[in-house]
C-alpha cells in the first residue's frame, strides 16, 4: 500500500485554512453558547411558567432534532421568509443555539447539584435570589459544571463538521477538497482524523487544567458524590 506523507504536506495550506475556520466557528459559537446558556438554564428553573415554558420548548426542539436538520432549517428556511442568510451566519447561529441548549442542561443540573441548604442559608440571611446565585450557587457549581461542559465543547467541535453541508470552509470541507483534488483517500482520512483529535485533545487538556483550579474546599462526602457523577 502506498502511503505518502508528502501528499499531506502539499495539501497542508488547505487543511490549515479549514482548521482555522473550525477553531473560529467553534470559539465564537462556544462563547456565545455559554453566555446564552445561563439565562436558558435560569428560565427553566424559574417559578413562573412564562419563563419556563419557552425555554423548555427551545430545549426540546433542539435536543429532539438532528443537528443536520437544524442547520438546513436555519440556512434554507430563513431566506425563504425574507431574512438574508450567509453560510457563515447560518453556521455560527446553528452551532451557537445547539451549544447553548446543551450547555444550559449542564448548567441547570449543576445549579440543582448545589445542596438546598446552601441556598436556604443565603435566603434566610436576606440575600436576594440573584445575589444568592452570584455569591453562593455559581461559585459552588463550578466543580459540577466543568466536566460536562468540557464534553460538550468536544461534541461541538465534532458537530461543526456538519457545516460542510452548507459550504462552510471548515476542516471537513477542506478534507473533501483535498480528497477531490488528490484522490489520495488514505492520507486525507488520516490527516483529518488526526487534526480533529489534536483539537479535541487540546480542549480536554485545557478543561482538566481549569477543573484543577476550581476551589476544592468541599467535604469528603461531597467530593465522593461529585466523582461518582463524573465517572458516569
Amino acid at each position: 500500500m502506498d502511503f505518502s506523507l508528502s501528499i499531506i504536506v502539499e495539501a497542508w495550506p488547505t487543511f490549515e485554512a479549514g482548521l482555522i475556520t473550525t477553531v473560529i466557528f467553534c470559539s465564537v459559537a462556544g462563547v456565545l453558547g455559554l453566555v446564552l446558556a445561563v439565562p436558558i438554564a435560569l428560565a427553566q428553573l424559574s417559578r413562573s411558567w412564562s419563563w419556563r415554558v419557552p425555554a423548555q420548548v427551545l430545549v426540546e426542539i433542539v435536543r429532539d432534532t438532528p443537528f443536520l436538520v437544524q442547520v438546513f432549517v436555519i440556512y434554507f428556511v430563513f431566506p425563504a421568509t425574507g431574512v438574508p442568510m450567509s453560510s457563515t451566519v447560518a453556521g455560527i447561529l446553528a452551532l451557537t443555539i445547539h451549544g447553548a441548549v446543551y450547555f444550559s442542561e449542564s448548567i441547570r443540573g449543576a445549579i440543582l447539584s448545589v445542596p438546598r441548604g446552601q441556598v436556604d442559608a443565603a435566603r434566610a440571611a436576606g440575600m436576594s435570589y440573584p445575589l444568592t446565585l452570584r455569591r453562593i450557587v455559581f461559585p459552588q457549581m463550578m466543580g459540577y459544571v466543568l466536566p460536562p461542559i468540557g464534553n460538550q465543547i468536544v461534541g461541538l467541535i465534532k458537530d461543526s463538521a456538519v457545516l460542510s453541508i452548507i459550504s462552510v470552509p471548515e476542516l471537513s470541507m477542506a478534507f473533501q477538497n483535498v480528497l477531490g483534488t488528490t484522490f489520495a483517500a488514505p492520507e486525507a482520512f488520516v490527516a483529518v482524523a488526526v487534526l480533529y483529535w489534536l483539537l479535541t485533545s487540546a480542549v480536554t487538556l485545557a478543561m482538566s487544567r481549569l477543573e484543577r483550579l476550581t476551589p476544592t474546599h468541599r467535604s469528603t462526602e461531597e467530593m465522593t458524590s461529585l466523582l461518582a457523577k463524573v465517572d458516569r
Binding site: G117, Q118, I136
Partner: peptide, 23 residues
C-alpha cells in the same frame, strides 16, 4: 421580593445541618 428579603434579614436562622457556605 425586596420586602421579603428585608424582613428575613431581621431574623437569624440556624439549621440542623449547619449549612455553612462551603467555599
Amino acid at each position: 421580593e425586596a420586602n421579603i428579603n428585608r424582613l428575613r434579614a431581621r431574623m437569624g436562622m440556624v439549621f440542623q445541618s449547619f449549612n455553612l457556605w462551603t467555599h
